[in-house]
């Protein structure tokens, strides 16, 4: 194997799982919703896309999932554009964890997790061993999987949803507001869990959230989206110390601010 071939091979392995958005534009009925959005998430990195409601983050999430078309630009995984895949191939490359887990209410946890591999004609034994592997990885008690979603706690639903998203072993995971519905005490303990789950999964993760605390805690890098444009991408420290725009500071302050004790009666 020549040196260049080896270098290309290595680059392929390293790049495997890289999620890229290149100059994505999207408008609804003439109104621009996303304008020139570019984002690169290297393999194994957890990245947060943060923005308030109306910032276009949900539209970006839908575009990334391949659910809605966009006007210009590219969405790529490992340098291959979305348009070169069938919907099924794309779906198997992005493991999606909807808000609150989004488990289907009529089937058990186990059935939720095995739904897609079952449709892909995986043998039952293969499904079972993959379920067992992921169950151990997310640290879920075996009995929970037999329950129906309405019999699970919020944290249990999240773990089952992560298992479901990881079943097909996608290079990229996409999480929508993973903590939004949880109460504060459970949040702090689950945050720790999630962080270590992401590390163990070793996947490229994009978290879409409006919550700065969640973004800072879970993600290495943060992209702030406002009115359909990316304002700044960087670490929390960079956003805090070198804001690209006054909006960055005001967004951070708005989320950090607690009532000043001196103003309280």
């Amino acid at each position: 194997m020549s040196y260049t071939a080896l270098a290309e091979f290595t680059a392929k392995i390293i790049n495997n799982g890289m999620l890229e958005l290149e100059h994505v534009h999207k408008s609804f009925e003439g109104r621009s919703v996303l304008s020139d959005v570019s984002l690169t998430i290297p393999k194994g990195v957890t990245h947060a896309l943060i923005g308030s409601s109306g910032s276009g983050k949900t539209t970006l999430l839908r575009i990334t999932l391949g659910l809605i078309p966009f006007d210009k630009g590219y969405v790529k995984i490992n340098e291959q554009p979305l348009s070169s895949f069938t919907p099924i191939e794309w779906a198997d490359r992005i493991g999606y964890v909807p808000q609150d887990g989004g488990l289907f209410p009529h089937i058990s946890g186990k059935q939720n997790v095995s739904l897609v591999p079952g449709l892909r004609n995986w043998p039952a034994a293969r499904i079972d061993s993959r379920v067992e592997e992921l169950r151990a990885l997310v640290g879920l008690d075996a009995g929970i999987l037999a329950r129906f979603p309405h019999e699970m706690s919020g944290g249990q639903k999240q773990r089952v949803a992560i298992m479901r998203a990881a079943m097909m072993d996608p290079p990229v995971m996409l999480l929508d507001e993973p903590m939004a519905a949880l109460d504060p005490l459970i949040r702090s303990s689950l945050q720790e869990e999630l962080k270590s789950i992401f590390q163990r999964l070793a996947k490229t993760v994009l978290i879409v959230t409006h919550d700065l605390g969640e973004a800072v805690f879970l993600a290495e890098r943060i992209t702030l989206l406002h009115q359909g444009r990316i304002i700044q991408t960087g670490s929390y420290r960079e956003l805090l110390l070198a804001p690209a725009d006054p909006f960055v500071t005001s967004f951070i302050n708005a989320q950090r601010s607690l009532p000043d004790v001196s103003t309280m009666p």
């Binding site: 794309w90 779906a91 198997d92 992005i94 999606y96 739904l115 449709l119």
Partner: peptide, 9 residues
């Protein structure tokens, strides 16, 4: 929408 995102036809 979730079902479509999971690749169900």
């Amino acid at each position: 929408e979730n079902a479509r995102a999971f690749g169900l036809n």
